[in-house]
Design a protein around this nucleic acid. Structure first.
Length: 281
DNA sequence: ATGTCGCGAAGATCGCGA
């Protein structure tokens, strides 16, 4: 199975380019973020004509996530447990959840398409929201893997965190002053790893960014960020056979500011009669 | 020049979010 994640920055503005990519690259499951529309506005037909089922979740022109899949999506969820909400100017409990998460099961894998809150600024309520949101995501991960240790779980999406200094090539993003690179955000990312997940792309694609701001010639200067990830549980990571970051998708007409991140999985069912036993670790 | 995008609402530009 070939699984991809892509912050598309509006599905309607570039649906042709996205479906073309999925078909050309043989993507079986495509987790999308920032679709920027409601399901009523989503261009389902373009995906269906290309052989994909799609589940979309969007409340307005902001955020929004979706998953397209060649096989039907099962057990779709539109939030993880205790996912915090946010409403500007209305800090406190009981804020409405945004359209930032979708979980679905396909090919034996529990896949999440996640659009982690940006944070906006180190002193901003949105930054507190970001850290709370990531904390609840880590708790979900711990609970899910405690309940089912051999679960093939994949958290994919735009995490809005550059986990190491090597993941930040944007000179305007400064440790100590900027979101995406602060220690609390990096701690929150490491907490996901401590919960039982691993970045399954970095071992196969050690360097390279996944996002370049539209402004200031960031892409021609290659001043980007690595902020889009596929984090997998042990059972998921053990099935990974390849990975790619499709930098070329930042080129050409009307690109998203993010590019797709792809992994290949060997999802052949274990065979009890196989002469060669499966060996882990 | 916070210099680019995308969206919606207003109304042929602006505010918001990133």
């Amino acid at each position: 199975m070939r699984l991809a994640t892509w912050n598309v920055n509006s599905i309607r503005a570039r649906v042709g380019r996205i479906v073309d990519f999925a078909q050309r690259e043989g993507i079986d499951v495509l987790a999308m973020q920032e679709i920027k529309c409601t399901p009523a506005q989503f261009p389902f037909a373009a995906f269906e004509e290309a052989g994909y089922h799609v589940e979309a979740h969007g409340l307005n022109q902001w955020n929004g996530v979706a998953i397209a899949s060649r096989e039907p999506l099962e057990d779709v969820e539109l939030a993880f447990p205790d996912m915090p909400g946010f409403a500007k100017g209305h800090e406190g409990p009981d804020q409405p959840q945004e359209a930032r998460a979708m979980g679905a099961t396909v090919g034996g894998v529990r896949v999440w398409s996640l659009y982690v809150p940006n944070g906006r600024g180190l002193g901003d309520p949105h930054y507190v929201y970001k850290l709370d949101w990531l904390g609840a995501l880590a708790q979900y991960t711990r609970d899910a893997l405690a309940r089912t240790p051999d679960l093939a779980l994949a958290l994919t999406g735009d995490f809005n965190i550059a986990p190491t200094d090597e993941d930040n090539g944007d000179p305007t993003i400064v440790p100590g002053l900027s979101t995406h690179v602060s220690e609390p955000e990096r701690d929150a990312f490491r907490a996901l790893e401590a919960a039982g997940l691993a970045d399954v792309v970095r071992p196969l694609v050690p360097t390279g960014f996944t996002y370049w701001d539209y402004k200031q010639l960031r892409f021609p200067r290659n001043q980007g960020l690595r902020i889009d990830f596929i984090l997998g549980s042990r059972a998921f990571a053990d099935a990974v056979t390849g990975a790619a970051i499709h930098r070329d998708e930042r080129k050409g007409d009307a690109p998203s500011d993010h590019v797709p991140v792809v992994v290949d999985l060997d999802t052949a069912a274990p065979d009890e009669d196989d002469d060669v036993p499966m060996i882990f670790g």
